[in-house]
Amino acid sequence: MAKSLMIVDDSATMRKIIIRTVRMSGLEFDRTEEAGNGKEALEKLQESPVDIVLCDINMPEMSGTEMVKEARKLDCCKETKIIMVSTESAEELISGVMADGANGYITKPFTPEKFQEKLTPFMN
């Protein structure tokens, strides 16, 4: 079944790069949404939920870590898989955000293979 994806990153360039990398990984989505921060992402998710969210951490207005906590309180996001994508690689940060409800973590710089590895388990 086709899946939907949302990219959350305050950099428009990085959002495009992630979309391109996901495409290079061979994974296909029937719908791809974009949001510039956690707040905008939550608003869009409430209007139209997606299956998988790829979310940056350091963003203005609402960070990725805050977004994960808030998303997990929403019924519409209970089944949404949230993968963090960030240059931050401190273990305590990763374990913290995973404990808050994230489903995976990809560190930048990333490769198409990394997206394939992390997203494939959620594609069925």
Partner: peptide, 15 residues
């Protein structure tokens, strides 16, 4: 935006 992101990626790699 790309210059800033490239910097961020370099710092991430170094980190």
């Amino acid at each position: 935006d790309a210059i800033k992101e490239v910097g961020n990626l370099l710092i991430g790699s170094w980190d």
